[in-house]
Each structure stands twice: as structure tokens, then as C-alpha cells.
């Protein structure tokens, strides 16, 4: 591309850009990219916690999108289609890395460990006040991918459960259930983190 980027992201509406992209218009491809790149990249970055990997995955997601764009008929929202592709690319990547990817079904089955704790009223560390961004990020990074995906889509990226259900390919109930479990898990992780910190300061 030799033209300035601002010019490339000119005033296409999305439907027009999609139609032009189907005919191989480079400006239309770039306009679609410019519109959606942040959200796709953010999702990839939160899921991988690695900028280089996130960029590679965002690139792969957009390439897959553009290769298939001629088949887009507008039955679903374009952004939903794109994010479904992105989620698939990310999950595929995690599988290739042989990380313990928890399937959606697995994560919704209750286990003894995940059952509601009856002792949460015990004298434990409270998450009072604000939560430090760095600690929260670290805790999110350590979530199992199944939980993490739903948490990132809902609480970080702001998707509704019905959108997540379409993007991830699960039921709305499943999405809600996983989100709750993800938050509970994060609460445990953050509390453990605070407890360690409190122990250190006492020892010091």
C-alpha cells in the first residue's frame, strides 16, 4: 500500500466494505481490518498473554476471514462471524501448544472441587477496595482456557451472553455458568495472592 492509512480507512460503511472486499478491493480489506483490529487483537492478547503470539493469531484470523469473505451472506453480524473465527484460531493455537484446554462441556460439569464452598464466611482475606490491574491480569492468565475465553469475551470485551453463545458455539446457560465459575476462580486466585502478600509483609 502506498497511500496513507487514513485514506484507506475512508468512509466505507461496513456493508459496502464487505461487498468491495468480495471484489478484491484492497482499501475495503484495510477498512474492515482497521475497524475490527483492536478487538481481535485484544482477545488474542488476553488469551495468550504474549504480544507476538497475539499478533500472529490476529493476522491468521483476518486472513481466514478474507479467504472466506466471498461466502459471507450476512445471516449473522459480520463482527460475530469475525470473532467466532478469532476464537477458533486462538483455541486451535492453544491446542497445538498442548495446553490443557478445557472443553466447554467439561467446564460446566460440577466437580467436588468446584462445588460452592460452604466456608467462604471464614476469616479470610477480603478483596476490599480496588483490584490491582496487574494482579488481575496475572490471575486471568492462569485461568483454564475454557473459563478464560468466556471471561475475556464477557467481562473484558463486553459481549453479551447471547453473542458469546454464537461466537463460541455454546448455549447461553453454558456461557453464564462458565462466567460464574471463572469469576469464582479469579476470586480464589486473587485472595491467595493477597494472602501471600499479607504473609510477606508480616514476616518483613
Amino acid at each position: 500500500m502506498t497511500e496513507p492509512r487514513q485514506q484507506s480507512a475512508k468512509e466505507f460503511n461496513e456493508a459496502e466494505a464487505i461487498e468491495r472486499a468480495k471484489h478484491g478491493d484492497a482499501h475495503a480489506f484495510q477498512a474492515l481490518y482497521d475497524k475490527h483490529k483492536r478487538r481481535v487483537y485484544s482477545l488474542c492478547l488476553r488469551m495468550t498473554a504474549n504480544t507476538a503470539e497475539a499478533e500472529d493469531l490476529a493476522q491468521e484470523a483476518f486472513l481466514q476471514l478474507y479467504r472466506k469473505i466471498a461466502t459471507f451472506r450476512g445471516e449473522s453480524a459480520f463482527s460475530t462471524w469475525l470473532h467466532r473465527l478469532s476464537v477458533n484460531v486462538v483455541l486451535m493455537h492453544l491446542r497445538k501448544k498442548s495446553l490443557p484446554v478445557v472443553s466447554l462441556e467439561e467446564t460446566t460439569q460440577s466437580t467436588e472441587d468446584e462445588s460452592p464452598k460452604k466456608d467462604f464466611g471464614a476469616k479470610d482475606v477480603m478483596l476490599a477496595g480496588s483490584i490491582d490491574r496487574m494482579h488481575l491480569r496475572r490471575a486471568v492468565d492462569s485461568l483454564p482456557p475454557g473459563y478464560k475465553m468466556i471471561f475475556v469475551l464477557h467481562d473484558v470485551e463486553g459481549y453479551e451472553h447471547n453473542e458469546i453463545a454464537k461466537i463460541v458455539g455454546c448455549s447461553i446457560g453454558n456461557s453464564k455458568s462458565q462466567l460464574h465459575k471463572a469469576r469464582m476462580k479469579l476470586r480464589d486466585l486473587l485472595k491467595a495472592d493477597r494472602a501471600v502478600k499479607a504473609g510477606r509483609s508480616k514476616a518483613g
Binding site: 492478547l45 493476522q59 490491574r133
Partner: peptide, 17 residues
């Protein structure tokens, strides 16, 4: 849990690729 949910918005990346 509400605190975690509200803090999560801060994790949205402002950077672009």
C-alpha cells in the same frame, strides 16, 4: 464478584497490533 467484573474492563487492550 462484582468488583472483579468491573475491574475486568481495565484489561481491555488499548493498544493495537
Amino acid at each position: 464478584l462484582n468488583l472483579i467484573a468491573s475491574a475486568a474492563g481495565d484489561l481491555r487492550e488499548a493498544d493495537e497490533p
